[in-house]
């Protein structure tokens, strides 16, 4: 019993850290001013939080029941691969549908390129 407790405790603490990361990124989703900064907070924080949680679950079942789940491993891999990609696609769609930047932002490098491209392709 006494030797069994730390092997259970480590993955559960990993899960707890992951949910705290999810919570912090959700606070960022409320407080930040525009869609791009919110995407910055959300994609990094939430991806890291869910990765911590899934790795904690994986380690829990590996230590507790000697169960190597290839499905959970694939799920970790897939989430790690696709969460930043979907954040990129959303911010790209937001920029191309003319969502405003925050008032505090100083520099917009993409604007000149987009205007140039509009003149070239006529759309």
């Amino acid at each position: 019993m006494n030797t069994n407790v730390p092997s259970e405790l480590l993955p559960v603490v990993l899960i707890f850290i992951g949910t705290i990361f999810c919570f912090l990124s959700a606070i960022g989703l409320i407080r930040l001013p525009d869609v791009y900064t919110r995407s910055h907070a959300l994609s990094k924080g939430s991806t890291m939080g869910v990765l911590f949680t899934l790795i904690g679950t994986f380690v829990f079942f590996l230590l507790e029941e000697d169960y190597f789940s290839i499905r959970l491993f694939l799920g970790i891999f897939f989430v790690f691969l696709t969460a930043p990609l979907s954040a990129h696609v959303i911010t790209r769609a937001a920029y191309r549908s003319n969502v405003e930047l925050a008032k505090e932002s100083i520099q917009d490098d993409l604007k000149e390129i987009m205007i140039h491209r509009k003149e070239k392709h006529g759309r």
């Binding site: 869910v50 949680t53 989430v79 969460a83 954040a87 937001a94 549908s97």
Partner: peptide, 18 residues
């Protein structure tokens, strides 16, 4: 804006996974 809502739905899916 609409991308805000899409982003929120994406985050909802990620939190549901956790």
């Amino acid at each position: 804006s609409a991308p805000d809502r899409i982003q929120a739905l994406d985050a909802l899916g990620v939190n549901l996974i956790a």
